[in-house]
């Protein structure tokens, strides 16, 4: 018997027989592995693996995207951002469809190169994502960026949204698989709050199917023993204290703020904006961006999908009007979006 088979047997023997167990992952890459390895088909009937808010472009507020589109229409501006961001739909279309001067980049360092090559333009880096993408943006600020480069920060904090999730009785989470890449930065200690304050077993796991299975085993062990701990089965990459250097520069340039999560709403202290000392680099301030009122996409239930309250297949538009080719909602756009993953594996 190979290792995964063993772990799966273990999962079946550990799972409580008398009730449902819900384990949530909060990372698009975890959901990718779970779906593409067919892991759900191997789980006991009463064990649900729920995809949570693991897709950064899915939660990026419509208002920021619309502002990005508007900025890209200025002749003196080149907007640069990650590829998936270009395709996210809004009431005013996507950056790719409606924007004018925009470029795709794969790392913030490319933004610097573009700024240097276009010294007559203002380069606006629409910087989105969780802690994993915040750190590189902080890193370029620390290195020093050209005067014509501005940051439109739409960063989000993973622990903040997870706290909303644990408090929501409708979802009823029994265990968290904490995101591997984010943990490498914030450290496994960052999740202690979930086991200590909320009594939720939380395990940091990597991205191989086997490692995720190991994480699930550990959550079930804790449930069986009636305890809640934060443990780490990805310890070759994730340290308890995380990457302190990255944390230090993130705190140097960014501060927490109340921000909107698309389809979910405002969550206190759940986003990052540039500190006021760096206002001169903050596209929001320099270009006096105004908040645009978010409009619900008719029929799209992305908000519920992100919060783990519904599977993509519950959406009436899924695989009909909404496909990866022409996504109606944000969760169908990126390879980390639950609807996109569901589309390819179900």
């Amino acid at each position: 018997m190979n290792k995964s088979e063993n772990l799966i047997k273990h999962i079946h023997s550990l799972v409580p027989k008398d009730r449902k167990v819900k384990i949530m992952n909060v990372c698009g890459s975890h959901e990718h592995t779970i779906a593409f390895s067919g892991m759900r088909s191997l789980m006991p009937q009463n064990l649900e693996l729920i995809p949570g808010p693991g897709c950064p472009v899915c939660v990026c507020p419509e208002s920021d995207i619309i502002n990005a589109i508007k900025l890209s229409k200025r002749d003196d501006v080149i907007l640069v951002t990650y590829g998936d961001m270009l395709r996210v739909p809004t009431q005013q279309g996507s950056i790719r469809a409606e924007g004018k001067n925009f470029r795709m980049i794969t790392s913030p360092f490319e933004a610097i190169a573009i700024a240097k090559n276009h010294s007559d333009k203002k380069i606006i880096f629409f910087s989105i994502g969780f802690e994993t993408t915040t750190a590189p943006t902080a890193a370029i600020l620390e290195m020093g960026i050209p005067d014509n480069l501005y940051i439109l920060s739409s960063h989000r904090l993973t622990p903040a949204i997870m706290e909303i999730l644990v408090k929501d009785a409708d979802i009823g989470i029994d265990g968290f698989i904490a995101p591997g890449h984010v943990s490498a930065i914030v450290g496994s200690n960052a999740w202690n709050v979930f086991s200590e304050k909320y009594g939720i077993p939380t395990v940091v796991a990597g991205f191989e199917a086997e490692n995720l299975l190991l994480g699930i085993v550990d959550i079930l062990r804790q449930i069986k023993e009636g305890i809640a701990e934060t443990t780490n089965v990805y310890s070759n990459v994730v340290r308890p204290e995380g990457n302190t250097q990255a944390q230090r520069i993130m705190h140097k340039y960014f501060e927490v703020s109340n921000v909107n999560w698309r389809g979910i709403g405002y969550i206190p202290d759940s986003g990052l904006e540039l500190k006021s000392e760096y206002s001169a680099r903050d596209a929001r301030k320099v270009f006096e961006l105004k908040e645009v009122k978010e409009e619900k996409i008719p029929g799209c239930i992305c908000g519920e999908v992100i919060l783990g309250k519904a599977y993509p297949s519950k959406c009436k538009l899924f695989k009909k009007a909404c496909t990866p080719q022409s996504p109606t909602g944000p969760c169908m756009v990126s390879q980390e979006g639950s609807c996109n993953i569901w589309y390819k594996t179900n």
Binding site: I8, S37, G38, L42, T345, N346
Partner: peptide, 8 residues
Amino acid sequence: TKIGGERV
């Protein structure tokens, strides 16, 4: 799949 799961 390699771990014995099934997907479409």
